[in-house]
């Protein structure tokens, strides 16, 4: 049942990415391209996504548990440290270079599977690299 809910959420998420233009690396780069023909679409995607989520957070505060009966497992909200900053910067550089972040990259398995494969393979390699680095400490 939990997996079915997650599958549904993933499919709605993926549909949203495809519909909004977020799945298109060229459009994402056009949003980040302030000195070119700037495309503000992504700001509208962000606004649309934050609205239902903000309502969800308001509801979440009143719920003792998730509807599945699971406890809420949520990350902390305050700690701003070097790994967070370094990670966000590196991610942003990669996002700017390729015009892809994890969600759209995975959704593109349905839209441009061969084109996205090198990115996805490298993304998983990057995650593994981080895992190995963390394990070596």
């Amino acid at each position: 049942m939990r997996a079915l809910i997650a599958l549904l959420a993933g499919a709605i998420f993926g549909a949203g990415l495809a519909l909004s233009g977020m799945a298109d690396p060229a459009r994402v780069r056009a949003f980040l391209d302030l000195f070119g023909t700037w495309d503000p679409t992504l700001a509208f995607v962000m606004a649309g996504a934050v609205l239902p989520m903000a309502v969800a957070w308001l509801i979440q505060r009143r719920l003792p548990r998730a509807l599945s009966g699971d406890a809420f497992t949520l990350p902390g909200t305050r700690r701003i440290d070097t790994p967070l900053a370094m990670g966000a910067l590196l991610f942003g550089i990669g996002w700017g270079i390729a015009g892809l972040c994890p969600g759209p990259a995975i959704a593109n398995l349905a839209l441009a599977p061969f084109a996205v494969l090198p990115f996805l393979a490298a993304m998983i390699a990057g995650m593994l690299l981080h895992r190995l680095r963390a394990a070596g400490r």
């Binding site: 997650a6 959420a9 495809a18 909004s20 459009r27 679409t41 649309g48 969800a56 719920l63 998730a66």
Partner: peptide, 26 residues
């Protein structure tokens, strides 16, 4: 090239998916 309407609609779906994960599965 902008498509604000579709962008916003797609965004709503993304937010809805996030809400399902949060409220449904925690």
């Amino acid at each position: 090239g902008a498509m604000p309407g579709m962008g916003f609609l797609g965004g709503l779906l993304i937010g809805l998916a996030g809400a399902i994960m949060l409220l449904g599965l925690g």
